[in-house]
Computed example of a mutant assay.
Amino acid sequence: MTDQLAQWRHETDAAITATLEAVSSSVAQAVPDAHEVLAPAMRYAAGGKRLRALLLLASHAAHEGTATQAAVSLAAALELFQTAALLHDDVLDGSDTRRGGPAAHREIETLHRAMGWQGDAESFGAAGAILAGDLTLMACQRAVSRAVAAAPERTVLLGTMFSEMADLVTAGQYADMRAAAQPLAALGEQEVQIRAVMRAKTASYSAEFPLAMGAAVAGASDDAISAMRTIGRDLGIAFQLRDDVLGLVGRPEVTGKPAGDDVREGKRTLLAWYAWSHGDTTARESIALAFGNRDASDTTVAAAVDAVVRSGAVAHVEQEIARLTQAARTRLHALGLGDAGADMLDALITQVVDRQH
C-alpha cells in the first residue's frame, strides 16, 4: 500500500511539473519576465501532501478503474487548483508565510522594493500573486483537458463536476470573507455560515469531488459517484476542522505558519464560534483583544488561544472530527468495494484527519 501511494505521488508530481513547464514555455519567449510570477507558483505547487490527488487515485482504483492516464491528469489538476487557491487566499488573508517561506505576494513585493521600481510595492506584490494564481488556474485547465482527452466517454461528466467544484470553492471564498467582515459581536450567531463555508470552500475540493471524480473516471455508476460525494463531504469538513485546530494550536516548526495565525486573521471557525458562545466574559475579552488584530502581540494572541482552549472548543471540535470520520468510514465500508481499494481509502482517511500539518 505504501509503495502504491508513493508511486501515485511520483506520477502526480511529474504531471504537475510537466504542466507548469508547458505554461512557462508558452510565455517564455514573448514575456520572459513572467518567470517572476511563475517561480512562486512552482514553489507552492512543489509542496503539500497530495492528499486530494491520492484520494482521487485511490477512489479510481477502488472502483476498478483502468483510465490511469486520465486519473493522474485529474489528480494533477486538483493539486494545481489547490495551488491557485493558496496563491489567491494568501493575498485575501494578508498572510506573510506559506510552506515555511514568504507568501507569494510578499516575495513579489520584496522584488519590487529590491529593484527600486515605481509605485506601491505592496500593491504590486498582491497583483503579481493574483496573476500567479491565474496562471496556475490556466495550468489546471491544461491538466483537465488532458484528462478528458484520455477519457472521452466521460468528458461531459468530468468537465461538469470540475466546474461545479470550482463554482462552490469560489462562492465559499466569498462567504468566508463575508462572515469575517461581520462585527465580532455577531460571531455567536454564525455557526450556520461557518459550516456552509467549510462545506463549499474546503470539503468540495478537499475530498468530495476528488473521491467522486475518481469514481467517475473509473466508469462508476451515478449511485456510486453520489455515495462518494456524501463520504467526501463528511471527510472534507473533518479535514477543515483539523486544519483549524492546527491553525490554533499547531507547532509552527511543523505547520509552517505562526501559532495563532487564524486568531490574528479573525478567521471565522467552529473553534472561534464555540469559544465565543460558550466561554465566559473573561474569555471573550481575551479573544476580542486579538481576534482580527494584525498588530496583536504574541502575548495577546497566546492569551486568546488559551481562552479558546479553556472554553472547551478544541475538545468539542475533536468530537466533531471523530463523528464525521466515523460516518465517512461507515458509508465507505457499506459500499462493498474491493478489499485493497477500501483499505487504501481507509488509510487515507486516517491521514486526512490525523495529520500534524
Rank of each mutant, 00 (worst) to 15 (best):
D262W: 13
L80C: 02
A28Q: 06
L332E: 06
E109T: 09
L184T: 11
A151P: 02
T281N: 12
A227F: 11
L56K: 03
A6S: 13
L187D: 02
E191M: 11
L38D: 00
A62W: 05
R43P: 04
D176S: 05
T282R: 12
D120S: 09
L57P: 03
E107M: 07
R310E: 08
T282S: 15
R9T: 15
G159Q: 05
L337G: 03
T97Q: 14
H357V: 05
L131V: 08
A171Y: 01
D3R: 02
A75P: 07
V156W: 12
A132F: 09
F124Y: 08
A175K: 11
A218C: 11
L332W: 09
F239I: 00
G312T: 08
L135H: 02
A30F: 10
V91Q: 03
A313S: 08
A30K: 12
D13P: 06
I287C: 06
Q319G: 15
L289C: 15
Y274M: 15
L270A: 14
D295W: 03
D33E: 13
L345R: 02
A185G: 10
L157N: 05
L74C: 08
R264L: 01
L332G: 09
E253Y: 04
V353S: 01
G159C: 03
D339Q: 13
L248R: 00
R9H: 05
H278F: 11
C140Y: 07
H35C: 10
E21M: 13
V308K: 01
G312Q: 15
A129R: 01
G214T: 08
Q240L: 10
V23I: 11
R323K: 11
I194M: 10
R98H: 00
A103E: 04
V72I: 13
A67Q: 13
V249Q: 06
A139M: 02
D343A: 14
L78A: 08
V197K: 09
A334N: 14
S311N: 07
G101M: 14
V148M: 03
H60I: 11
I321S: 05
A143K: 05
E265A: 09
F124G: 07
A302G: 02
W276T: 09
Q319K: 12
D176V: 09
A304L: 04
E21S: 13
M138D: 04
E285A: 11
G94C: 08
Y44N: 13
H63Q: 12
Q7Y: 03
M1D: 13
G47L: 06
I321A: 06
A215Y: 02
A238S: 03
R229A: 04
I231Y: 01
T170M: 13
A147K: 04
A129P: 13
F81I: 09
L92D: 14
A218Y: 00
M228I: 09
L335M: 15
V317H: 01
T2C: 13
W273H: 14
A14K: 05
G260D: 03
L248V: 01
Y174A: 15
G119I: 03
I287F: 12
L157H: 06
A275L: 06
V31T: 07
R113D: 09
R146W: 04
I349F: 07
A58V: 06
S26Q: 03
H105E: 08
A143E: 00
